[in-house]
Design a protein around this nucleic acid. Sequence first.
DNA 1: TATTGTTATACTCTATAACTATA
DNA 2: TATAGTTATAGAGTATAACAATA
Lengths: 145, 145
Amino acid sequence: MTAATRQSPAELASLLRPVLLRLTRLVRNQRADMSVTLTELSAMAALEKYGRMSAGELATCERVQPPSMTKVLAKLEDRGLVRREVHPTDRRQAIIEITEPGLALLDSERSSRNAWLSRRLETLSAAELAALLSIVPVLDKLAEQ
Amino acid sequence: MTAATRQSPAELASLLRPVLLRLTRLVRNQRADMSVTLTELSAMAALEKYGRMSAGELATCERVQPPSMTKVLAKLEDRGLVRREVHPTDRRQAIIEITEPGLALLDSERSSRNAWLSRRLETLSAAELAALLSIVPVLDKLAEQ
DNA sequence: TATTGTTATACTCTATAACTATA
DNA sequence: TATAGTTATAGAGTATAACAATA
């Protein structure tokens, strides 16, 4: 792939930015008949994946500012999808945990969203799917702060 | 990459969704000292890349609904970054074109954003960069409607 | 004083529904 | 009637600044 290696990071950046934006719009918008937004789903998924954590840690993990996470958590807590506790030794911290109803909703929302995205993924070849899977850790690394 | 081919599209979907969201947040947010938002930059970039087109075509291209594009275009037109003309034979259509000042701003904004994203890209290996470059057309295909 | 989180506020992003003008 | 685009409206998403409680 000699063409690839000749490409500069700046050129790659120019190619990557618009496609990320459009793809995320598509994924975010596929919420007809969904009962949580993509932002909420992602916060719940992080709580499931990494376990209970403070509000601030969750904000960092989700790459948003603390006040943004406060709002998301208020909505989720209102619906009983997450629960909060005071940290045992530092009472400033709010420890957030996903509840049983939260896990159940996460599961069902995730599978209907997966079904939708999978239909799009199925238009790709096996090689393209494999390439996409192997790029996920690279994207994760890029998204790290 | 046998592990890759064993992965189902649904599992891939579950991996892809959160990282797309976080990465786009990061890219969108890197606008301290930027004079156009990511949404505006992307619309201008499409006009530069594909040339003049109708407002509706631009909305489709950007994967947004027509009223959303109306708002973006109003802001850009106010600042003289795009210009509109009536279609010569169908007076319902608004043909949108990027202006000279728009092109100049696109260039400068793009390069400061590229500089920022490039610094992140530079933490990747040559192989990772090559993989990322070769995945761009796959992401484009996925974002198609 | 420093840190954690919230409240107050404001702007961006985006959609759906209803409308206008033109075809 | 159908289509292109806009206006009206609303909600989601997110930030910065200022604040309260706790360390």
